[in-house]
């Protein structure tokens, strides 16, 4: 069980995409959302703004499928991480991830994913709205999502739009 988790409070996010920029800046020293481990969506793709990144699954399928054993759990942070040196860029992990949270680095041709920045996530620091938070896993954040889902459900049109576009 992870001690701390990276979460997004949906009501606060405005999809400014600064998290993507902060992520690529931290990991590559340059700005390129294509190299970001977190992705931000909004109109017209989704009916509401939201950021998505690796959920660090308990039983991570990417870890199991990697043929070069490049994917493993960092015991200090609990994050699933990829060893760049071992990765062959075969994209198996990208295919099995149920959430599409692993992508191929367009410059280095290796799989990249959120590693929680070693326990100090950069995206959280540069999230102006405070939507991204790195919190104790025991502090349940489900109530955000319950309220949010209720809000979306009361507006059925929005929900239909969401289904159509996703």
């Amino acid at each position: 069980m992870l001690e701390k988790i990276l979460v997004v409070e949906p009501d606060k996010c405005v999809a400014c995409r600064n998290c993507e920029l902060a992520c690529s800046f931290k990991h590559g020293g340059e700005f390129n959302p294509m190299r970001s481990r977190i992705r931000s969506f909004n109109y017209p793709v989704t009916p509401f703004p939201i950021s998505i990144t690796c959920l660090q699954c308990e039983d991570a399928v990417c870890e199991g499928i990697c043929p070069t054993w490049a994917i493993f759990r960092d015991l200090a942070t609990g994050a699933i991480v990829i060893d760049k040196e071992r990765c062959e860029g075969c994209e198996m992990c990208m295919q099995v991830c149920p959430f599409g949270n692993i992508r191929l680095d367009p410059l280095e041709d290796v799989a990249i994913k959120c590693d929680l920045c070693g326990g100090d996530p950069e995206c959280v620091k540069f999230c102006i709205t405070g939507a991204l938070q790195y919190v104790e896993a025991k502090d349940s954040v489900r109530f955000w999502w319950r309220d949010f889902v209720e809000k979306v459900q009361t507006n059925k049109e929005n929900l239909l739009v969401a289904k159509e576009r996703l």
């Binding site: 400014c16 995409r17 920029l21 109109y43 009916p47 509401f48 703004p49 102006i128 049109e157 929005n158």
Partner: peptide, 18 residues
């Protein structure tokens, strides 16, 4: 219905309306 921001701006002031 929702706020829409320009790239890189947290002060989203464009609105999606229905």
């Amino acid at each position: 219905k929702a706020s829409v921001s320009c790239m890189g701006c947290a002060y989203a002031d464009k609105h999606k309306i229905e």
